[in-house]
Design a protein around this nucleic acid. Sequence first.
RNA 1: GGAGAGGUGGCCGAGCGGUCGAAGGCACCCGCUUGCUAAGCGGUUUCUCGUCGAAAGAUGGGACGGGAGUUCGAAUCUCCCCCUCUCCGCCA
Length: 422
Amino acid sequence: MIDLKVLRENPDLIRSTLKKRGVTLDLDEMIEKDKERRTRITEVQELKQQRNALSEEIGQLKRQGEEPAELMAQARDLAHKIKEKEDNQREIEQKFSELVQWIPNIPHDSVPVGTDAESNKFVRGMKTTPKTDFEVLPHWDICEALSMLDLKRAPKISGSRFILYKGMGALLERSLINFFLDLHTTKHGYTEIFPPILNPTDCLYGTGQLPKLEADMYRCRDDAFYLAPTAEVPLTNMHREEILLEKTLPIKYVAYTPCFRREAGSYGKEVRGITRVHQFNKVELVKYATPEQGYSEFEGMLSDAEAVVKMLELPYRVMLLCTGDMTFASAITYDIEVYAPGMDEWLEVSSISCYEQYQARRANIRYRKPGKGVDFVYTMNGSGLATPRTFIAIVENYQTKDGRIRIPTVLQKYMGTEYISK
RNA sequence: GGAGAGGUGGCCGAGCGGUCGAAGGCACCCGCUUGCUAAGCGGUUUCUCGUCGAAAGAUGGGACGGGAGUUCGAAUCUCCCCCUCUCCGCCA
């Protein structure tokens, strides 16, 4: 949720935001609705003020033993009028808030303007793709050969775009999750959370998946739950409707969860292998911070995620996403991409976003500044990391000429071996 | 799933139709005092939405789990829902 003051006082800022993001919304309608809404509020308030004065008077007379029938009749009339006006006002309020939910966050000044990934900006890391001295197999081939994935049987259970890990593949997956969690809890100071991942509508509005991404999520038929598309949802909603103490900030959480995405509209893209799937594992980082702490904590989160690819010794680069490639609620997003030589592609393994106060406004997450009132917190999150593509990168980068896979040093203690072979 | 108890400010906790935005405590902030790692005393401080104002602030509405209702008037009464606790049942 944007700050409504901006809508009133500086609508051009929002207009330029919409333009930068390539979003079309009827802003004038919203501004109009907002005005109407405030007029109605004032009307209702005036009536209530009258009623309160009358009630007060009646109360006093009654205490003196009188029975002010006429005043009471007057008050009754007022009460009817109030009810009518109030119903109407609530309706307008409702419509307005539905409209306003569609306004995306205002991008940070450093975010490049553009319509798609072409305009993303290289920040650091590897500039060119590394060369290998032999033909590297794409992950689907090497993993079949080493019985790490069962690409034939996954569809039998759940359909296309589901992963069935097997044997050393399953162990590698589990090892990655454990390595990520251990690193962030012991080295980076995050508190581990293992949250529920069936989340109600309110939570998805809170983090900004709804209303926009409705079609991209799985929904339960008999209960009002969505399957969380990311642990960001439970982790960020943990403190919804709370006023936190300033001294408790920043709060840093890490959680492993499976993530569920319908990937509606992506048919035909990236069909081969396990780059784009309906269910995947991810270790997610979430922070709550004060606005002052905000951007340094955000940079810290980026380096926490970056530490993972560094330790895995994968070729990677950090990209700053342009306005058109960023999600709706984000003010700024970095992607970490790793290179997969078998596919000859850069794969996004982490997306680190700062929402400033956008999510906090929606989920009503505030903090108290001692002696200086309350304000919304900054929220941010980042993958640290998502497994399928990390898995791909390992399998493709660590292939040996003789068809084995060497295990990255940091994973060896989790895997109990140095190589995966037939 | 059944029975009972309960959900009040940042936290704990009183209140059970009008004088209650809510005693008291903790915490916070501001003073003062004392001066063996810190304590004592006094004071302040709920949140939210309108309106006016550059702001400080002024003024009004609302909020006691959520929603509906009764009433001139609801934290207090009624109904529905949610959640927590205790007991029983069922069950991975």
